Each structure stands twice: as structure tokens, then as C-alpha cells.
Amino acid sequence: MNGLADADSRTSYEAVTSGGFHTELSEAEVREYMDDANMEVDDRLKNRGLSDRRLAKIERELTRHFIKFLVDDERQVQSEDIGPVSFDYAGALSAEGLKATTHGQQAVEYDTTDTLGPDGGDFWSVTA
């Protein structure tokens, strides 16, 4: 993998992996998702009048969303039953898209242009 260097990103590896966010992925793997988030922010939000600070937060949350949405072992639990144990996870085949994880929801919230939200077309809505 050839991940994004912090200097090429609005966020940093440290920012992505701080604040209680936990992942078992290697730094190189996290940087690959940082690159994906950077590309999405550049393509969809860069010239829409959002501040660099806001874009950095969106990029951080998109990175976290990608990890919790796309990586099988990292998926966020959406619901659980205690007995007999049952878990439902957010995942790439969820029609929920960015709404499937708390990080995706936060990215949509930070996007005051509504480009990432339901009115702008949730780019991670995928159906089986």
C-alpha cells in the first residue's frame, strides 16, 4: 500500500486515531483510507466555500467511516440482542451509506453544503 502522507492530507494519522477511535489496522492501511477520504473531499467539497478546518474534520470523519463501514473486522455494531447473542453491523452492502456509522453521520453534519447528505446524494449508498 502506498498511503497518503500527512502533508498531502487535511487530516493526520494521529487525528484519525485519536479521540477514542480504535482500529486494528496498520498505519499504512489507515493512510489508504485517508487517501480515499482526501480524494472524496477534493472532488466533492473543495470548492464549495467550506473552511479548511471544516474540510479537515470531514476528511477525518470520512476516514473513520470508511474503516468502520468497509473493513469486515472493524464494522460498527448497529444493533445487538443480549440473549441469545445477536449483532448487526454497518457494512458496505447497507443501504444506509454515510448514515450507517456515527462517523459518516458526523461527516454529513459538518458538511453545511448538503453535498454528502440525502439531498446531495449519499455517495456510499450501496444495495446488494
Rank of each mutant, 00 (worst) to 15 (best):
D8G: 10
E74L: 09
R53Q: 12
W124A: 09
K46C: 09
E40F: 04
E32S: 15
Y89D: 03
V77P: 06
K99C: 06
S125P: 06
Q76F: 04
E14S: 15
D6N: 15
K68A: 11
D122V: 13
A107G: 10
R54S: 05
W124C: 06
E59F: 04
T101L: 13
R44M: 06
A28W: 02
V77L: 08
F87M: 11
I58R: 00
Y89E: 02
E96V: 03
V126R: 01
L62W: 01
G49P: 01
A5G: 08
T115G: 01
M34A: 10
G19N: 06
S125Y: 09
D73C: 08
S12P: 09
I58V: 10
Q106K: 13
A100M: 05
G3W: 00
E40Q: 08
T11V: 13
E14Q: 14
K99W: 06
S18L: 08
V108K: 02
E29R: 13
T115Y: 00
V30Q: 00
N47Q: 11
A128W: 10
H103D: 14
D119M: 12
G91K: 01
D81R: 15
A5E: 12
F66Y: 13
A107N: 06
T101W: 07
A128S: 12
E74T: 13
R48Y: 08
A95H: 04
V71Y: 00
T127S: 12
G3Q: 04
D81T: 15
L45V: 10
E40T: 07
K57S: 01
R10T: 11
A100Q: 00
R44W: 01
R60F: 05
A100C: 09
K57Y: 00
S86I: 02
Y33N: 15
E24I: 13
Q106S: 12
F69G: 05
D36K: 12
G121D: 15
M1N: 09
S79C: 07
A128I: 09
G83I: 09
P84N: 04
L45I: 09
N2D: 13
S18V: 08
